[in-house]
Design a protein around this nucleic acid. Structure first.
Lengths: 158, 158
DNA sequence: GCGAATCTGTACTTTTCTGTCAAGATTACG
DNA sequence: CGTAATCTTGACAGAAAAGTACAGATTCGC
């Protein structure tokens, strides 16, 4: 159970822009430098975030990326969904609402139920966290660790 | 945020053996067939589980794999740890116990804190779930979905 | 002892993911 | 109008993960 690299870096890039305050914007080179990744890489991540509806882009000489909505209205669960996909699709039991007879004994369902319970637990955190919360962090969140989360070839985080 | 393939299939293989009841055992071919994966693949997963201390193996003509401990003493969090590694290491803030001055403003820490909150939420579920719970499922776990969790080339789960 | 059935361990191939690249489109400014 | 700065898009290459294959070691039963 791991975070994907786009989830880690995409969310960081989005936060960089959010830190510019309402209406603030950053260009690809600026985000690239701030996060220590290549411009091409930053461009790819920002594009995904734009397609997902979290960023607006402006082309041309005075272009750049801006938050599409206020930071407090951007829910982290939605962002991670776009960057990496969900753990498990929440449209469960849409038609198994009746007596769950046939599937209660299979090994499959045992595992599925577990995955689902995890999804619920994770969503409980992510659905209640906005970009704004991350910006003014330190409230319900604890102190950090210095351990690396993702692949070894990525830059070491300060 | 995804489960790795070993996590999904390794846990299933372990459950297959657990379903044999106390003292029950299965061979590699049996597990392989029950889960619809190749014998080589099953062997690899079972070896990991044995190394992790969840299975005992017996070689020779009457060999096979048996649970190393009763199902109720095997915690799923430990199993997934061996199969796929943790989301985030829990030895956080071992030395940042004091005033967290320098790191409270960085973007890194915002993200880290979020990852950590997720780890805590996930552990809350996994540390309280044993193999026994999965065998007699349907208690705190809900009905299943029919969506696939992992890579497309894996066998479609019934 | 010999052979069959079983697990053990390492190396290899395929697939998937991740990050890179190059060419194009758009806008602002002089 | 032209130049420079910016975003856009699809294709590509390297790296990591996943699954496969093979040769070996152990045990049981005859």
């Amino acid at each position: 159970m791991k975070f994907s690299a786009p989830e880690e870096y995409g969310l960081r890039c989005l936060l960089q822009i959010a830190r510019q305050g309402p209406g603030g914007s950053l260009t690809i080179p600026q985000v690239s430098q701030a996060e220590g990744i290549s411009q091409h890489h930053a461009a790819k991540l920002l594009r995904i975030l734009r397609t997902g509806g979290f960023l607006k882009s402006a082309r041309g000489q005075a272009g750049g990326y801006t938050l599409a909505r206020p930071a407090r209205e951007i829910v982290v669960a939605d962002v991670l969904d776009v960057l990496g996909g969900r753990l498990f699709n929440p449209d469960f039991c849409a038609r198994h609402a009746g007596p769950d007879a046939a599937c209660a004994q299979t090994t499959d369902c045992s595992i599925r139920s577990l995955w689902l319970a995890l999804q619920t637990a994770v969503d409980g955190v992510l659905n209640r966290t906005t970009l704004q919360d991350l910006l003014q962090n330190g409230r319900e969140m604890q102190s950090p660790s210095q351990q690396l989360v993702q692949p070894a070839h990525l830059r070491p985080v300060s």
